[in-house]
Simulated assay, not measured.
Amino acid sequence: MGVTIRQIAEAAGVSRGTVDRALNNRGRIRPEVAERIRAIADEMGYKPNQLGRALSMSRNNIKIGVILQGAETPFMKEVLKGIQEACAEVDNLGGTVLVHKIEHQNAEDVILAMEKMRMEEVRGIAMVPLDEERVKREIDRFVEEFRIPVVTFTSDVEDTKRLCFVGQNGVQCGRAAAGLMGELTGGKGKVAVISGYSTNTSLSSRVVGFCEEIARKYPGIEIIGPEYCFEENGRAREITEGIFKEVPDLDGIYLTSHGEEGVCEAIAGAGKAGQVKMVANDFMGRNYELMREGFIHFLIGQDARIQGYEPVMILFRLLFNGEAPERAKIFTEIYIRNEYTIPEGRH
């Protein structure tokens, strides 16, 4: 019997994922660690049989489905790049990845996409879910009745039988935003919270983390909202304009989702650029430009590529190698930038 990745991981004292990245030259890994893992694999006589696996996959017609909600937002377009990278890897080994894009976030569309993929005989589904009972029931039904494992990404529904989640720790992101806002406002004043969808747990957990940390550390801050813009700039502008009418002495805005341009248009229209402190998310779209113009004071980023790439590869390893994920929640790193840390040449 050949040497397995698990055996190499135990010998090297690292995770199976680290071994996989070292042997396949993908993902971030320190060069000295990768070199040591490859040396251990050679000593143990590890011989990857990719051709054999590819032939086996081809015979079994193994398919993986991906359901991407909010597909037209700047963040999800970056996530899609990671999905496409994983698609190419799976395709090289004889497998197939079917991607279904949903423009907005809609429970009925998600359920229809899941059923369509079941009819296409997918063996696993990676999906952006919604925190709605009928979606959660459908996830459990797919896992229990159809034996189709489900991996959630960017947004989670942990009270289901999903295999695991890949994405940002939303509560921790919200806490980070609270710390930044507290420093920007001196720990006092009125701060509005604008989010995308209440049913998107990635966004709702940011709201929870923000509100909890503000209450704990900055009791002098009064929170307005949250209001929901459905990640549309037009709706975000209308909400912000309405908040200014109700709260003319607003000190800050925490935006958890896409809708930055709309919020900034309202700030400009009210003549409050630079006065109203704004914390937003993700290093894409026009966010760097809006930061340079003084509208956004801090951006909190995440690894969009990994959130698209890793869910597909988790299912790949499970279905093709019998390798289960190491954890139920695989969190990506949280990054923070201001106008002084914008990468050169980025707009």
Results as ranks from 00 to 15, higher is better:
Gly242Asp: 05
Thr96Asp: 10
Gly301Phe: 01
Gly52Glu: 12
Glu108Ile: 14
Ile111Ala: 10
Thr332Leu: 06
Asn25Lys: 06
Ala39Glu: 09
Leu290Pro: 14
Pro325Val: 09
Thr96Arg: 09
Val208Leu: 13
Asp282Lys: 00
Lys188Gly: 13
Asn25Glu: 09
Glu232Ala: 10
Lys188Tyr: 05
Ile336Glu: 11
Ala12Met: 05
Tyr254Ile: 07
Cys264Val: 11
Asp249Gly: 07
Ser204Pro: 05
Cys264Trp: 03
Ile223Arg: 04
Thr18Met: 06
Pro311Ile: 02
Leu318Cys: 12
Met278Ala: 13
Asp131Leu: 02
Gln275Lys: 15
Ile306Phe: 12
Gly285Lys: 02
Ile194Arg: 07
Phe320His: 01
Asn60Cys: 03
Glu158Leu: 15
Ile8Pro: 07
Arg235His: 11
Arg53Ser: 10
Ser198Pro: 09
Arg337Trp: 00
Glu144Met: 03
Gly225Gln: 05
Gly252Met: 07
Arg175Lys: 15
Glu222Val: 08
Leu203Thr: 09
Lys77Arg: 14
Ala177Ser: 14
Lys101Pro: 09
Val157Gly: 11
Tyr254Leu: 09
Asn281Ala: 09
Arg30Gln: 10
Asn200Val: 11
Pro311Asn: 03
Gly252Ser: 12
Asp20Asn: 12
Asp91Trp: 00
Glu108Cys: 04
Arg16Asp: 13
Met181Pro: 12
Ile267Asp: 08
Arg123Cys: 13
Ile62Gln: 04
Gly170Lys: 06
Gly271Lys: 03
Gly209Thr: 11
Gly95Cys: 02
Gly301Arg: 00
Tyr254Arg: 04
Gly234Lys: 13
Glu35Ser: 12
Ala328Leu: 08
Gly94Asp: 03
Ala12Lys: 05
Leu68Gln: 07
Glu231Ala: 02
Phe283Gln: 02
Gly269Phe: 07
Val14Arg: 01
Phe283Cys: 05
Ser202Pro: 01
Leu319Asp: 04
Asp91Arg: 07
Ile267Glu: 06
Arg38Tyr: 02
Ser205Met: 14
Ser198Gly: 00
Glu103Ala: 15
Glu121Cys: 13
His258Leu: 00
Gly95Pro: 01
Gln69Lys: 01
Val135Asn: 08
Ser202Ala: 15
Phe283Lys: 03
Glu222Pro: 04
Ile224Asn: 11
Lys161Ser: 15
Arg327Tyr: 14
Leu163His: 05
Ala273Asn: 15
Asp303Cys: 11
Ile40Met: 04
Gly220Met: 04
Asp42Pro: 00
Cys264Arg: 02
Ile314Thr: 11
Gln50Asn: 15
Met1Tyr: 08
Phe146Gly: 08
Val79Met: 05
Val19Phe: 06
Lys101Arg: 14
Ala280His: 07
Glu103Met: 11
Leu163Trp: 01
Arg53His: 09
Ile224Lys: 11
Glu260Gln: 15
Pro248Cys: 10
Glu89Asp: 13
Arg21Thr: 08
Ala177His: 09
Ile64Thr: 05
His258Glu: 06
Arg38Lys: 12
Ile300Gln: 08
Thr96Ile: 04
Glu326Gln: 13
Gly322Ile: 04
Glu78Pro: 01
Ile29Arg: 00
Ala176Gly: 15
Tyr288Met: 13
Glu132Val: 14
Ala34Ile: 01
Ser257Asp: 02
Glu289Val: 12
Ile267Asn: 05
Gly179Arg: 14
Lys116Trp: 04
Glu103His: 08
Ile83Asp: 01
Glu132Ser: 04
Thr341Cys: 06
Phe298Glu: 12
Gln172Asp: 15
Gln275Tyr: 13
Ala54Cys: 12
Leu23Tyr: 02
